[in-house]
Design a protein around this nucleic acid. Structure first.
Length: 289
DNA sequence: AAGAGTACCAACCGCGACTAA
DNA sequence: ATTAGTCGCGGTTGGTACTCT
């Protein structure tokens, strides 16, 4: 059947953007806001594909972009989030205000990969390189190496409890794996229901579930029900509108964290206090949608 | 000084997800 | 239930700047 092209390619510019094009795009978005990228180029008088406009705006022209070098803290946060989420650059970018997925992706490929290799760690699995070479390494030894690696990577150098070692077990109550590289050696199905509060890599992986929009005064019994449901991997069967975000991945302030209707209006402290909510990370940058 | 190699990053491409008809 | 349109994401490419020999 084939796919219709996203735009009329014969009459669109490609390649680097000129200053004038940038100005037109900025002016248009300032006047009309983001959205409807397909019709934007025509309305803004640009001979560009809508996709190209969107990319240019998101990755380069947005006023809230930080630009400049990544800090050591950002490096470490990216590494931790990558270990947790895999190549979900948009999710990772959501935890780094002012950074874009493209920027982080490029930075990962050009800097952090090498940094991890220099540490003797595999950038894909975040495990020691020698551990990957020897698949026959005893599980206990592997865990020890894994633990040591976390301790080295974290300024505080905290050690993890045995039940905290699988970065993805905490996500296993989600219907889908959050990361593409998680399943080979640690089947999600074998995970036991997580304890109420878990920390991993210095990031609190407290998971909770609620229907969206979440109301602070919701019946506790309902919340308990939802938590029970989530812990049995049945979360998606009860509702398609469940708000699922991961708590405490470096949220910086109240209200940040969720794009779904009601949950974003609930202060994070309040959300954190509701032990049995199950939430899933969504891209968080305010300027994006 | 010049050519080769490498690093960086903006931009493109293709696909999946989502939605409305 | 199906189809077409649109958006967003992740992988990849290509141009440019920088470094090395």
């Amino acid at each position: 059947m084939g796919r219709s092209p996203c735009c009329e390619k014969a009459h669109t510019n490609k390649g680097a953007w000129t200053k004038e094009e940038d100005q037109r795009l900025i002016a248009y978005i300032k006047a009309h806001g983001e959205g409807c990228w397909r019709s934007l180029p025509k309305a803004a008088g640009l001979l560009r594909c809508g996709k190209s406009c969107r990319l240019r705006w998101i990755n380069y022209l947005r006023p809230d972009l930080k630009r400049g070098n990544f800090t050591e803290e950002e490096d470490e946060l990216i590494i931790k989030l990558h270990e947790l989420l895999g190549n979900k650059w948009s999710l990772i970018a959501g935890r780094l205000p002012g950074r874009t997925d493209n920027e982080i992706k490029n930075y990962w490929n050009t800097h952090i990969k090498r940094k991890l290799l220099a540490r003797g760690m595999d950038p894909h699995t975040h495990r020691p390189l020698n551990a990957i070479a020897g698949a026959a390494m005893p599980a206990q030894q592997l865990r020890a190496a894994h633990q040591h690696q976390y301790a080295a990577a974290t300024p505080g150098g905290h050690h993890l409890q045995p039940q905290q070692q699988d970065p993805f077990a905490a996500l296993s109550s989600s219907a889908e794996p959050a990361c593409s590289h998680s399943s080979d050696d640690e089947p999600a199905g074998s995970a036991t229901p997580p304890p109420p509060s878990r920390r991993h890599l210095g990031i609190d992986l407290n998971l909770s579930i609620s229907l969206a929009p979440y109301q602070p005064g919701d019946d506790p019994a309902v919340k308990q029900e939802a938590a029970t449901t989530a812990s049995h991997n049945n979360a998606t069967t009860s509702t398609s509108a469940a708000c699922m975000c991961l708590n405490h991945l470096g949220f910086q302030g109240a209200g940040e964290g969720c794009r779904c209707g009601g949950a974003s209006s609930v202060p994070m402290q309040q959300q954190a206090s509701t032990q049995h909510m199950f939430r899933f990370i969504a891209p968080l940058e305010g300027g994006r949608q």
